[in-house]
């Protein structure tokens, strides 16, 4: 490969296709995280939840022989982990960042422990059969964009559908309006009689399920095997992509694709033998992310109520009626006019 080949379509089409593949798991994690952060809960535990999704998804797909069962189980596992995270941060008011870090340590350790104890004998070759790509009729024949975007693994088409779904849900639905308000001005949501805890928990649950799926896509769809440490920081990259995309689904999708394309591009630069040291090339997508996050986040800013617990004593009378009776008994309402 020479420098002149950078100008040819035969270079750009496989590059774009690779960018879409790299972006897919990142986008699953980022879309979920965007919802959670919009609701005022930053889930730093993405990396761990992805690792959990990878191991659970792999095990279930391996045992049942069904990839989709693996994906569903991974979503369920991610959701379960996020409920623990949500209980601690939303209901008990624990610091979101600290809790997220603890979740990472716990889940990454759990994933590798589970794999090591189930496949302790090195003679077992645990792997899945590869899932063939699916060419979308007509669309995959389009010039230039046909092959990169429409001759992919079926899961890629799922993410194409999820982008508008998340956009409608977050930016054009009643639920989305409440979620966004929960992240900016929780008092307003509360005084409208909506239970802020359950609302945030729903957002966190979506985030956890999407993170579990993201991990399973890597293990079940893209590699067909579980490898310890295979998430390799993708959870943290997804966190940056959310900021980069300004918490909006379409922009998050564009940010994930850009990261994927730059990563695929640096691998091709290495192949071309350009006289740039490989550590710099390897760092390119990360440098880009840092630069763009520093540049974009400076203007956009996080949701105002992020990492701010909403304590029970702030609950309005209207919202408190929605809580189970016992929690109201544990935290008696302050007497007004006293």
């Amino acid at each position: 490969m020479t420098f002149s080949s950078f100008l040819e379509l035969s270079f750009w089409i496989p590059l774009l296709a690779a960018g879409v593949r790299v972006a897919t798991p990142l986008l699953f994690a980022s879309l979920g995280e965007a919802v959670s952060e919009r609701a005022g809960v930053i889930n730093v535990g993405l990396e761990g939840m992805m690792a959990l999704g990878a191991i659970v998804g792999f095990l279930v797909a391996y045992w049942t022989g069904l990839s989709w069962a693996g994906l569903l189980a991974a979503a369920a596992a991610g959701l379960a982990a996020s409920l623990i995270f949500g209980f601690l941060t939303i209901f008990r008011g624990a610091d979101q960042v600290v809790t997220g870090i603890v979740m990472n340590i716990l889940l990454l350790g759990l994933a590798s422990f589970a794999y090591a104890s189930i496949f302790s004998s090195a003679h077992v070759v645990a792997q899945l059969t590869a899932i063939p790509i699916f060419r979308v009729p007509w669309l995959s024949d389009l010039p230039i964009i046909g092959r990169p975007f429409f001759a992919q693994s079926p899961i890629v088409y799922v993410v194409y559908l999820l982008i508008p779904v998340f956009w409608l849900l977050l930016e054009h639905s009643q639920w989305g309006l409440s979620v966004r308000a929960a992240g900016e001005n929780p008092e307003a949501v509360d005084s409208a009689g909506i239970n802020i805890w359950y609302l945030r928990l729903q957002a966190v649950a979506i985030c956890g399920a999407m993170a579990g799926l993201a991990g399973a896509i890597l293990a079940v769809i893209q590699i067909g095997a579980y490898v310890d440490g295979m998430i390799s920081g993708r959870g943290f990259i997804a966190l940056a992509i959310v900021v980069f995309g300004g918490w909006r689904p379409w922009r998050v999708a564009a940010a994930a694709l850009l990261f994927g394309v730059v990563d695929a591009f640096q691998l091709r630069l290495q192949v071309s033998g350009v006289p740039i040291p490989s550590p710099f090339l390897i760092g390119m997508p990360y440098i880009l992310t840092i630069v763009v996050v520093a540049f974009v986040a400076g203007r956009a800013g996080y949701p105002a109520a992020i990492n701010k617990a909403y304590p029970l004593r702030h609950f309005s009378r209207k919202a408190r009626k929605l809580l189970p009776a016992d929690s109201a008994a544990v935290h008696p309402l302050p007497q007004e006019n006293s």
Partner: peptide
Amino acid sequence: NYINSFDDAGKAKEAAQAEIDS
């Protein structure tokens, strides 16, 4: 291709694919 990892199977796959594409 160097991927700066011993266990990032996803990146290794894309690195191999970049070479196969060439």
